[in-house]
Design a protein around this nucleic acid. Sequence first.
DNA 1: CCATCGCTAAGGGTTGACCCCGATTGTGGG
DNA 2: CCCACAATCGGGGTCAACCCTTAGCGATGG
Lengths: 220, 220
Amino acid sequence: MSPEKARVFMVDDHALIRAGIKAELAGSVEFIGEADEVAAAIEMIIERSPDVVLLDVHMPDGGGLAVLEGVVERDASVKFLALSVSDAAEDVIAIIRAGARGYVTKSIEGPELIEAIERTAAGDAVFSRRLAGFVLDAFTKGADQLHTTPSMLDPELDQLTPREIEVLRLIARGYSYREIATQLDISIKTVESHVSAVLRKLQLSNRHQLTNWATERRLL
Amino acid sequence: MSPEKARVFMVDDHALIRAGIKAELAGSVEFIGEADEVAAAIEMIIERSPDVVLLDVHMPDGGGLAVLEGVVERDASVKFLALSVSDAAEDVIAIIRAGARGYVTKSIEGPELIEAIERTAAGDAVFSRRLAGFVLDAFTKGADQLHTTPSMLDPELDQLTPREIEVLRLIARGYSYREIATQLDISIKTVESHVSAVLRKLQLSNRHQLTNWATERRLL
DNA sequence: CCATCGCTAAGGGTTGACCCCGATTGTGGG
DNA sequence: CCCACAATCGGGGTCAACCCTTAGCGATGG
């Protein structure tokens, strides 16, 4: 089925698992490197441009997602096959949205994994069978908003007081002043005050810009 | 692999193709019926509740999409495997959005089709290998290509005139009435008219809800 | 030929969003 | 003890958003 062995790079923070996978795949693929943390993985992947990257999803420092994003912004042609113990929808969808071409769980058997790698190398999309269904479900329903970064690290957010942020989030969700007032049990005038303060501090001029600002920063 | 044969219903307007598929699958699945047009297909599928419906996409009177929608609104548990000559993104995405669990092209070979049917019956999602990639692309990018055929995808959009849709999209992007008026070179009052019409037709009450409505449907 | 529909536009009205000007409390820090 | 600041309101104002109604004008279709 495969004229040449696929050149595979593996990213996983557990040495035991790396060893296990290598043993399973020995002879069927060509391992060209491995990494156990995010930063090193990104550099080595860019440098060696493997056919397929076997990517563990759950790792320190941002996990597989950080690796994916770090690599894709520099070379979008790298094909990732996510390999995870998790079958949670958030994980799968986040990884796919970030650009991975496949996602299989670690319950996969050796031969299947080999096939999955080969198909990924050939440009196909590969999923654990049970997984494929709800990826489609997410697509059908249009499930977007997955909060990946609740960013505490935003200097612009820092100038806002807690109450202002609270009001900001309600504004961004489309609530009217009256609704916000009721919900926070304060007067409309107070809501106005907070909104004015937020608009001034962020140098915006109306609630639509505020909505965009908030969605860009994933505050919803 | 399959303890029992899958009970299959086939919808295709070409008798020749139906015969061909039946010959290919003879002995591997149990055919419990077939139909060559939309209305009859819906009734028979509801009545016989097959494990899998093999569905031709391009047919008179609305095609496979009409069958899908007609059946799903009465019994959402029916599993559809779309079978089509087309590998166009609009077709695939429309069918998936309507609730099909798989999509394969007619270039598929007999054994693969049997496997696809069995996997569909088992609840998996099945795609022609070359197809899976761009379905994921559409998912990743937020399905931009849906703009090309909005009417096929959304009955609510159907009630809107082209001009109304144009205005709707600008509203959803946060433009003010004045800005929209300038951009479309019409008067503010006309913009108001269109917006009012849109709000009334969609049974919404303000522009924020409109924005949410539009983003949910990926009109941006 | 008339009816319908899409697009255009206006008049006139209510409400909400946003601004500027205040003011009062409570809290923590120098 | 006073100052700064977060949080709470109010008055009074402008303009945008939205509603309802009416209406001309061109194209389409029975």
